[in-house]
């Protein structure tokens, strides 16, 4: 797989200091008592045709980041830039009709294909609705043709347009969801744990389909998953999220074999391996992920980190470049010798 050349790097999407805070309200008067910092000061770029894998524990803010990036949530602060041909669109400034029109460029595939389709609509309606909403078709014939074409691209058949979602298996439903996301020819798709709810033997079909569609249509993915093996298969680069912040971003193999953040090290060491023999010296994490409504001072990871020094308790590290491709937010990144995975290629 060719690496991206950073000199000519013209990201499709760049995210600048993005924040998404959810208010916490208490009592009868719904008094504001604090914020859940679900996404806190995230900087990120995704190149065209690239897949950026986003990993982290549940509650780390992966899904909120994905959803905020496509304006399903309104950001609390920060900017999202989207390249549209030669123009750079500031997504955070789009409102109303403008935003609605722009949405066709950005789609999302959810984890659970059982709750993300309308059970009362046929496949034709489920998949074709985006075309109608965006006024992109002029006749029913045209609608059917476009839906059938998209269904065939995801491996379903013409006859399926009249069926209802309940008559499909989980894997086929996920194909319908993919068809619905695909029909507007988006540039960018957020895949939010798209195979986590599927049986193991079905996962490969969906992952391969997503890869083929990317190749065919030049789509850019943000691929969210808690499963490192799935992310390794899909991603060109991997970003690691912890308590609403990005702690490390690097090309896939680099991140897996030479992590620079202690959290990444611990996360990788926890991944179960099929190689025989029990591994020694697992960097097991103690404690639980922090409460995003009540984050520790300094580095958000310092309470669970086994390398903590005084500076970590006081100063919050920013995501900084170690080299042009590898970004990490750890005060001690240069001094630590962390253990990555042995991939045995």
């Amino acid at each position: 797989m060719e690496m991206l050349n950073r000199d000519t790097f013209t990201p499709l999407i760049s995210v600048r200091n993005l924040k998404k805070y959810f208010p916490i309200q208490r009592g009868f008067l719904r008094k504001l008592v604090g914020y859940v910092r679900a996404v806190d000061d995230v900087n990120l770029e995704i190149e065209e045709r690239e897949t950026l894998g986003l990993v982290g524990e549940s509650g780390s803010g992966k899904s909120t980041l994905g959803r905020t990036m496509i304006r399903l949530y309104d950001p609390t602060d920060g900017q999202i830039f989207f390249r549209d041909g030669d123009k750079i669109i500031n997504l955070t400034e789009l409102e109303g009709e403008e935003l609605r029109k722009f949405r066709k460029n950005m789609q999302i595939i959810f984890q659970d294909p059982f709750s993300s389709l309308n059970e009362r609509m046929t496949v034709l309606e489920n998949v074709g609705d985006p075309l109608i909403i965006n006024g992109l078709i002029s006749s029913r014939q045209e609608l059917i043709e476009q839906v059938v074409e998209t269904l065939q691209q995801v491996g379903l058949r013409r006859e399926d347009i009249r069926r209802y979602p309940h008559s499909f298996s989980g894997g086929q439903r996920q194909r319908i969801c993919i068809a619905r996301a695909l029909i507007l020819k988006p540039k960018f798709i957020v895949c939010d744990e798209p195979v986590s709810a599927l049986d193991v033997s079905i996962q490969a079909q969906i992952l391969n389909l997503l890869k083929d569609l990317q190749e065919q249509f030049g789509i850019t993915y943000l691929f969210i998953s808690h499963d490192i093996s799935v992310v390794r298969y899909m991603a060109d680069r991997i970003a690691v999220m912890y308590a609403g912040r990005l702690v490390e971003v690097a090309p896939r193999d680099e991140l897996l074999t030479h992590p620079l953040h202690p959290y990444t090290e611990a996360l990788l060491s926890a991944v179960p391996r099929t190689v025989m023999g029990r591994r020694k010296g697992r960097a097991i994490l103690t404690g639980d992920p922090p409460d995003p409504a009540n984050l520790p001072t300094g580095c958000v990871f310092h309470v669970r980190c086994r390398y903590t020094r005084d500076i970590c308790k006081e100063e919050q590290p920013n995501l900084r470049s170690i080299d042009s491709n590898h970004h990490v937010s750890c005060h001690l990144a240069e001094t630590l010798e962390l253990k990555g995975m042995e991939i045995h290629v």
């Binding site: 996962q203 490969a204 499963d227 290629v345």
Partner: peptide, 17 residues
């Protein structure tokens, strides 16, 4: 089953569903 599952080690090959 083994061929259809993504792995964290070994060569990256296309999965065979």
């Amino acid at each position: 089953l083994f061929r259809s599952i993504p792995k964290v080690e070994g060569k990256l090959e296309r999965l065979v569903p």
